[in-house]
């Protein structure tokens, strides 16, 4: 199942996530809140590559992103679980409809936001606009997901078909 991870250039695309997070293009923001680029990258990856690879990819991306942000909040638990969950979903059925992708991204970023809100509560950080941030981020992520995730799904499926069986035979 971990066919994509064998291709180094596939793994290297994960580096786009922190770069996009830093660049945070203003045109793709909703109420000043940027989409969760980690979710948008992780969803197609996990759907194609299975739960183990998904969880590891989530872990890697979360480590990259946590290094970029101040404070005690961490995206690691949410992305780890999301990668594993989406990997399970992708193994069971072939999810590719735009609506399903949008819904999964919506649920994923809402869950990510909820874990961050929980951590804010745990560390007793004051943030009166937490739920507005969760809502805005979930909505903009879900809106972008059909567009970006379907393209990535196509790319990953093609490369896993091109390299996957051969890699499987070799191992």
């Amino acid at each position: 199942m971990i066919a994509l991870a064998r291709q180094r250039w596939c793994v290297a695309t994960a580096l786009v996530v922190p770069l996009l997070t830093l660049a945070s293009p203003g045109i793709l923001k909703l109420a000043g809140v940027a989409p969760s680029w980690a979710v948008l990258w992780l969803l197609p990856w996990a759907l194609v590559d299975g739960p183990l690879s998904g969880a590891l990819a989530g872990l890697g991306v979360a480590l990259l992103l946590d290094g970029l942000h101040p404070g005690p909040l961490s995206q690691l638990p949410a992305l780890l679980v999301l990668g594993w969950w989406w990997g399970r979903l992708g193994r069971g059925s072939r999810i590719q409809r735009s609506f399903s992708l949008g819904l999964l991204a919506l649920l994923g970023s809402a869950a990510l936001g909820a874990t961050l809100a929980l951590q804010q509560w745990f560390w007793q950080l004051q943030d009166p606009v937490t739920w507005r941030t969760v809502l805005a981020q979930s909505l903009i992520t879900a809106l972008l997901a059909p567009l970006l995730c379907s393209l990535q799904l196509l790319l990953w499926r093609r490369s896993s078909q091109a390299f996957g069986p051969a890699a499987g035979l070799r191992s």
């Binding site: 997070t21 830093l22 660049a23 945070s24 923001k29 109420a31 000043g32 809140v33 940027a34 942000h69 101040p70 404070g71 909040l73 961050l116 941030t133 805005a136 981020q137």
Partner: peptide
């Protein structure tokens, strides 16, 4: 200032 995050979970500049 090469990166600006003012909305969302973190408020930071790079």
């Amino acid at each position: 200032v090469i990166s600006r995050e003012l909305g969302g979970w973190w408020q930071q500049l790079l």
